[in-house]
Write a protein that binds this DNA or RNA. Structure first.
Lengths: 350, 350
DNA sequence: ATGAAAGCGCTAACAG
DNA sequence: CTGTTAGCGCTTTCAT
């Protein structure tokens, strides 16, 4: 058992060259190295099954080849498909470019101690991807007008100019509106997200309402009820909607979980979701397809959002050298309507 | 802007002591340090807003205070609740003990290059938690009879003696059997997991079948059909079961996803899941409670499994010093039946 | 085309 | 109780 790991010095000795030479070859700065030594060194590495230490490399270069994924302190955050899909996308992009992923949760203590900054100054990490940011996260201001490599994944802020990649929530809202109107619905309700905290929630609702208005069917404020993106709150919101307008024939929920909550509410009111009351969700989580009836929804490609955010972050990090004037990264990814079986034309009362 | 990060030397200078003193204080080896210098140094750190570099620390100590979570190369692996719950548990335990989490996917290239070993030799990571291991992962043999800090999370192997933490699958199978028999079912079917690849699948089935036999109602092989843990395969397996025995009144599925697939199949056969045919699932994923009817299932506390695995790994790492003779870690966590609405006594044909 | 040497920021004997 | 010193494994100027 070659228990002692071989290091750059062993390789140098084995191939009869200096440390420098080995290092240069390692870093592909080998224009200056003769092909013969190059080969000799390479095979020495092979023979000693040498792999450079990331740690030791990071010290002088101040690069860790690692990215942090930061999520808010929610219960079992990583079990949420939303985060999970995004993280999968991030992982994919990172792995393809040779970066590793560190998982971090922004607990209270974590924020108080500014660990997110330490992480960078530390050189533990070359950049940060923040998923699930809301207005609550005031410390993000510290990144405003800074060149620190941080990307806000699938959200953004009006007042703070931060790099971000998001789905086109405005288009999503408009798409839902068109779909429901085209089916013939006129008595529509909307379960919106927490729009005061999350810009994307606001955009979705804004997109939905403006389009309805544009097409001549403006929605009264009474027909918009807020939920907290959870099944339970979706159910409650739907109860409220149904009470305010028993003639309701269609509902657009700001996410699939709330749409599924609406299913429950509708059933409890002895109506059939998908028949008597049409539902459009948003996100296209896996459960949407499994629901009964399968949920028509707006697909947000979260995997893609993750991957794209990560690529942007990496370019940002790697371009750092020839950085001529900061330009805020602001990208908007397209969405699509996935038609399943939770909608039909409004039923004429028997 | 104090742009240049302050280091241990700055702190030493600022407080008028040597590097060593600062280092000792940093590592809480301060029995030897006078309280006054200690305070002086501490406030110097505060003043310079000093935070030690993890990288630099790791080099001499050969400790990264980081753990790797390794998952198999599945599509969008992190979006799976199963992995997600476990990872959440791992994170929790790791954070509480000051460890960070690195995410790794065992892609083909990754395995070929033995990156999982590099990771350790590298000192990028102090230990590895492998979730989703199956018989396919032959490279795990390299960890057999080794003291390398690796824990298999929620699986184990007959032939390789590896550290692991698992749910008590045998008990789970027995519990399901008792429950169904107690309800009065005699025409039972079972959708098992890929038992040739995964020991826990085998244990679950074994636990179920033995208990049925013990209680005097042995199940014929025909009434056991295998699925691949996916909704789709659960549906197919159930189709098969229904065809083999139309008198079937109850089914035990090896996981909730397949149980939900069974729902679909049963509906397509114009029977009512939960009424005409009882279903017991396994895992208790969030969707189980949302299903219609809500699924009765065996709860496997995956969060707990993750947390416990992680703690075991950490103790293993930290005890390394006074390591007297390897003892394989082998822990089995309890399970419980969560009664919802997908089961009832067998219906007498009208 | 290659090598010597000075760090990167910290730890841990060993001295005093 | 505190300081000196020699690394940890690698990068990178500057010489040769």
């Amino acid at each position: 058992m070659a228990n002692a790991r071989s290091n750059i010095r062993d390789v140098a000795r084995e191939s009869g060259v200096s440390l420098t030479t080995v290092s240069l070859i390692l870093n592909n700065n080998d224009e200056r190295i003769s092909e013969s030594t190059r080969q000799r060194v390479l095979s020495a590495m092979e023979k000693l099954s040498y792999t450079p230490s990331r740690l030791a490399r990071g010290l002088p270069t101040r690069r860790a080849n690692t990215l942090a994924v930061l999520v808010p302190a929610l219960q079992h955050a990583f079990a949420d498909v939303y985060f999970g899909e995004i993280i999968s996308g991030i992982y994919e992009a990172a792995a393809n470019r040779g970066y590793r992923i560190l998982l971090e949760v922004a607990r209270r203590e974590y924020v108080r101690r500014k660990e997110y900054l330490t992480l960078l100054e530390d050189c533990s990490v070359d950049g940060i991807l923040f998923i699930g940011a809301t207005e609550e996260h005031r410390w993000l201001t510290e990144f405003h007008e800074t060149d620190k490599p941080l990307i806000i994944v699938n959200n953004h802020f009006k007042q703070w100019d931060l790099h971000h990649v998001v789905c086109d929530y405005t288009a999503a809202g408009a798409l839902a509106a068109d779909y429901l109107i085209d089916l013939g619905h006129r008595n529509i309700g909307h379960i919106c997200g927490p729009s005061s905290m999350v810009v994307t929630a606001e955009e979705l609702t804004e997109g939905f309402l403006s389009r309805l208005a544009e097409r001549g069917f403006p929605l009264s404020d009474r027909m918009v009820v807020e939920g907290q993106y959870l099944v339970e709150t979706g159910k409650l919101a739907c109860d409220e909607l149904l009470q305010r307008n028993p003639q309701l024939t269609a509902i657009f929920a700001a996410n699939d979980k709330m749409a599924l909550g609406a299913y429950q509410s509708i059933r409890q009111h002895d109506r059939q979701p998908g028949k008597e009351i049409s539902i459009v969700g948003c996100d296209d989580i896996p459960t949407a397809a499994l629901a009964d009836p399968p949920l028509t929804t707006i697909r947000m490609n979260f995997f893609e959002i993750g991957a794209e955010s990560c690529q942007q972050l990496i370019s940002m990090i790697e371009k750092k050298a020839d950085d001529n004037g900061r330009k805020t990264i602001s990208e908007r990814l397209p969405i699509a309507l996935i038609e399943r079986e939770s909608c039909c034309p409004p039923q004429v009362p028997a």
